[in-house]
Simulated scan of single mutants.
Amino acid sequence: MDVRILGGLSVSENGVSVTPTAAAPRQLLALLAACADQVVPVSVLMDEIWPSGAPRGARAELHSHILGLRALIAAALPEAQDRTAGAAGTAGAAGTAGAAGTAGADGPDGSDGGAGRTPETVLSAQSGGYRLDTGGGSHDVWQFERAAGAGYRAMEAGDLARAALRLGEALALWRGEPYAGVDAGPRLRTEAERLEISRLSVLDQWVEAQLGLGRHAEMVPELAVLAARHPLNESIHAQFMVALLRCGRTDDALLAHQRLCAALRADGGREPSARLRRLHRSLLTVRDSARPRVPAQAQGSRPRTAPRPASHPQAQAPTQMQPQTQAQAQPVSLPPVAPYRPSAPRPALAGAAAVGAAV
């Protein structure tokens, strides 16, 4: 059995879809698929379908939905496919079709293709609940979690290239919102929120790996889209600002900070976190350091000169004091300020921390 949840519910057995179109059976299958290979109590299933309270006859209706799912599974099992093919033609054609069915009993991945599985074993009643047996098939949530775990371990080991690869593989499994097209109850909504939080965590670490590899210019367009899609996500905005800074676009980074602050204030008067405030101060420091400092004389101020000597000979200053007066009249030369150059990316630092140790 193959289960797809990350972007719409899709469950197939032996390559044949067993996903119902009716709302209640579809919701029931979604919860069983979320807990695949585990027993889901009847009370949990009923709370999902009837969150405001189960009506009279709810248990019988639930059992009816289970029978409907088993009918879809039965039609997808190899035996049912062989019977359909055998009844379609003559005895000779039936023999050919039967041989083809036997040869095709192995699934695309080399498994037994469902041999020995029955509707009652695929969707079985156990210990006061029901269990959906995948038979060792694929599940995109499990694949996502395995790839994400490998990416996290690579990040901890400092292998940014492998981390970016595995975390990218995890994100590529997402086709849209989890359980899209399903009338989710409280259980499925909680599971969908958990998956979305996990996706954002993987996305955060994937961006950190990309920035650590020096791919700032490549990440700016994607981070711009992510910042627009998540206007209140401080982590994404911080990474966007860091990428802009490392591309020499300090003013654009400050503008991104302004947009985030405006969105936070509109969302109940929130203020940016301490991390964002430190990043903002660092951006201001970088901007001010990059501006050349102009001496006072160049700004239009008149240089100081020695006082004009009086015309009376006795009022003139002593000759030995004149050199000192002339020295005081010279304008002060300021050392030139070196232009700011962003430092090379350091893999050990992540996100906003790469701007400076204080961020």
Rank of each mutant, 00 (worst) to 15 (best):
V182M: 04
A315E: 15
D288S: 11
G8F: 03
A150N: 10
E191A: 14
R278Y: 05
H257P: 05
G110L: 05
V355I: 13
S201N: 15
G136Y: 03
V207I: 15
L165A: 11
L349H: 08
A161M: 11
V141N: 00
L245H: 14
H280C: 11
G113E: 07
Q297E: 15
A354S: 15
A71G: 07
L276D: 01
Q322H: 07
P292F: 03
E79N: 02
P186C: 04
T319C: 08
M155C: 14
L45S: 03
G351M: 06
A338E: 11
G181C: 06
R304G: 08
P20N: 02
D112L: 10
G181M: 05
R166I: 02
A105K: 08
L171C: 06
T319S: 15
P347C: 09
A58I: 02
R341W: 03
G95Q: 13
Q205Y: 13
M321P: 02
A157M: 08
G116F: 01
M1K: 03
H230W: 11
P178D: 06
A329N: 08
A329G: 13
L211H: 04
P347Y: 03
L69Y: 01
P345Y: 07
D106R: 11
A30H: 04
R291S: 12
Q316E: 13
E61R: 15
R166G: 02
A209H: 09
G151M: 06
G137M: 01
Q143D: 13
P231I: 00
R270K: 13
A58L: 01
V220E: 07
Y130K: 01
A150Q: 14
L279D: 03
A238F: 03
R265F: 09
G214S: 04
L244G: 07
H257N: 14
R70L: 00
P347D: 11
L173S: 05
E48R: 02
E156L: 14
R4T: 05
D106W: 07
S282G: 12
V286I: 12
L200F: 04
V225L: 13
A296P: 00
E193N: 12
C247P: 05
A344F: 08
V220R: 07
Q297W: 10
